[in-house]
Computed example of a mutant assay.
Amino acid sequence: MHSGADEKTDAASFAEEALRRYPLTGVQVEHLADSFNTIYRIRSLEGDFALRVGPADGIHRAGAGEAETGWTAQLDRAGLAVPCVVRTTDGADTVIAPDRSWRATLLTWLPGTPVPVPPTRRDIEDLGELSARLHEAAPSTATLPRGVLDARDPFAFVVPVALSTAPEPHHALLGRGEDVAREAVAELWATADEPPRVIHFDLTPRNVVRMPDGGLGAIDFQDMAWGHRAHDIAHSLFGATRGEWSVAALEAFRAGYSRHAPWPAVDEAHLRRLFVARRVSMINLTLALRRPGHDETLARHLAALAAALDAL
């Protein structure tokens, strides 16, 4: 397994290779962030762009690049501030390394500024408003579109269920968490009063920017899923509060959301159980990927899961 430093070096080398596939001149590369992916800001004579570099085997479904390309283009036409996928000179939506170790996607640049952490009440209200606008722009669809995650699965990402690989003392806690997660997601699909649609699935403060006109723009559509609005809302609130349930955050988000769309038929208790589902999914992803620093991440998630289950 590569160290974090080795991964950064490999990603940077591949970023340079990938950029040769695009019709850009006078290119300057600035490293911006690392998470599952590494993000670079690309300045060129043709304009500014964002380059996303991540593992080619990934955690998403086949066709994810095509789905992101089509969906962001549709949202852009609807007047929403989103980054659109830029195709290579030969028309590809993604660049794959010859050894299939890395993939890169070039996106148009949104000229905004990050939302502070923790977000203000106004930020959370505006996040709710943006969530509603995205939902209103997404037509319902009776079948799972190619390339998007399936939100019927509480783990969603295309990785093995790895909860049993956690240290044995945590098995009972994770078993309780998995039961709550599966029941919460199944109940959502069984009782929803509307068809599913494509949802962002990770619309959190770290995946929005404050635009020059004062509104919010959405970024990072890689985790798009086929699911219900309430599930998307739960993920947004989870991200806005770092997984800590907050009535004040719920009220602010709902106030913003209701400016553009009716609130879905979901109560607070169900949203709290969807919080648990999100936490369990993050734990499973941590265990399946075992990236550098995963022990600390796992310990933090396990403590938070125990507290959340006790509060139900």
Score class of each variant (00 low, 15 high):
S131E: 03
S131I: 12
S131H: 14
S131D: 10
A132R: 04
A132G: 10
A132Q: 02
L134M: 11
L134V: 15
L134I: 15
H135S: 12
E136G: 14
E136C: 14
A137T: 09
A137Q: 06
A138M: 02
A138G: 13
P139L: 08
S140I: 06
T141A: 13
T141W: 10
T141F: 13
T141I: 12
A142G: 12
T143K: 07
T143D: 13
L144D: 03
L144Q: 04
L144R: 01
P145V: 08
P145M: 00
R146H: 15
G147I: 02
G147K: 07
G147W: 01
V148K: 00
L149E: 02
D150E: 03
D150P: 04
A151P: 05
A151T: 08
R152I: 06
D153L: 08
D153S: 06
D153P: 00
P154N: 07
P154V: 02
F155R: 09
F155P: 01
A156K: 09
A156W: 09
V158H: 02
V159S: 08
V159H: 05
V159R: 12
P160N: 03
P160V: 05
V161T: 10
A162H: 06
A162Y: 00
L163D: 01
L163F: 04
L163E: 02
L163P: 02
S164C: 13
S164W: 14
A166W: 02
A166V: 03
P167G: 07
P167L: 10
P167W: 08
E168K: 13
H170L: 10
H170W: 15
H170A: 11
H170S: 15
H170P: 09
H171C: 07
H171M: 07
A172S: 13
L173Q: 04
L173D: 06
L173A: 13
L173F: 11
L174R: 04
G175D: 14
G175N: 12
R176N: 09
R176G: 12
R176M: 10
R176S: 09
G177T: 05
G177H: 02
G177S: 07
D179T: 15
D179R: 15
D179I: 14
V180W: 01
A181Y: 10
A181E: 01
A181Q: 01
R182I: 11
R182T: 13
E183H: 13
E183F: 09
E183Q: 15
A184P: 00
A184R: 03
V185M: 03
V185Q: 04
A186Y: 10
A186E: 15
A186R: 14
E187S: 12
L188S: 12
W189A: 03
W189L: 11
A190W: 14
T191W: 07
A192F: 09
A192N: 08
A192G: 12
A192K: 14
D193Q: 12
D193V: 09
E194Q: 15
P195N: 11
P195L: 06
P195R: 01
P195I: 08
P195K: 06
R197H: 05
R197S: 03
V198E: 01
V198M: 00
V198P: 00
I199H: 01
